[in-house]
Amino acid sequence: MIDVLYFAWVRERIGIPKEQVSTNATTVDELVEELKSREERYALAFSDVSALRVAVDQELTEFSASIENAREVAFFPPMTGG
């Protein structure tokens, strides 16, 4: 089981801030494909991953990154702090 978190408009589109996902995916890309195949709201949220950022265990990374042994994966739009 892995914790999947959503922030900002990704959270709004998917409708929840966090969920536990049982997955065999080994990379972020594979996890995204699994989620997209679930329901329309996921397909919509992940329709253009170039507009998204991902963090694995709270470290910003690439969609090609491994999620093996990861506890937490988070998806969100580009950050707008400051």
């Binding site: 922030f7 900002a8 963090a55 910003l60 739009p77 580009p78 950050m79 707008t80 702090g81 400051g82």
Partner: peptide, 14 residues
């Protein structure tokens, strides 16, 4: 610090 925290710290403004 300003440049990095604008686009590398996980904040989102609405």
């Amino acid at each position: 610090l300003m440049d990095y925290l604008k686009s590398r710290a996980p904040f989102w403004k609405q």
